[in-house]
Amino acid sequence: MENREELKQLIARIKGGNTDQFGVIIERYQKLVAHVVFKMVTTEADREDVCQEVFVKVYQKLDSFRFQSKLSTWIATIAYNTSLNYLEKKRVPLLDDVAPQESPLERIAAEDNTPDETAEYKDLSALLIEEIDRLPVQYGTILALYHLEDMSYKEISQITRIPDGTVKSHIFRARKLLKDRLLAKYKQEDLCR
């Protein structure tokens, strides 16, 4: 996806005063930024504003980008830090729910869904999105970078400033948590039928 020479020329044009060319950067990396920001910023109304703030920062800091890392890693780092600042302002914890206080089955029972309501969850992707949103924000972000952006543990470690090993263990724990919750939800559906 990232052609170094092409990117260098593009950035040189932007630095040279061709601001409109920055639109190419936005088009190319908006999905990456959204994957980071949407996982961390839970308030829907604020998500797009934070994404805009990220690109404004990218534009303002473009002079300091020296191609020491991939542009995607650099942009994702800015997105991550901007989202972190947002979370700090809103006092949202990063890892608040690592060990669930109740088992998935208990939680589902507590939700007291009717069979009709539960039937809505049959679509795996919708169910998955809902469960990802329930994960601690940092787990969701790391999973998105790994599975949606195909980033390595090392790249994720650079972005989040978390050691490689911790990134790996976060990914394993997040996936196990998701698998257990999804299975529990499917079992609940079977019970409701």
């Binding site: 639109g23 088009e27 992707s125």
Partner: peptide, 18 residues
């Protein structure tokens, strides 16, 4: 997880940011 797609940014996001 690899196909997790949802409504992300609005269609006019680029124009508005620019």
């Amino acid at each position: 997880l690899a196909q997790e797609e949802r409504q992300l940014l609005s269609p006019h996001f680029t124009a508005r940011t620019m």
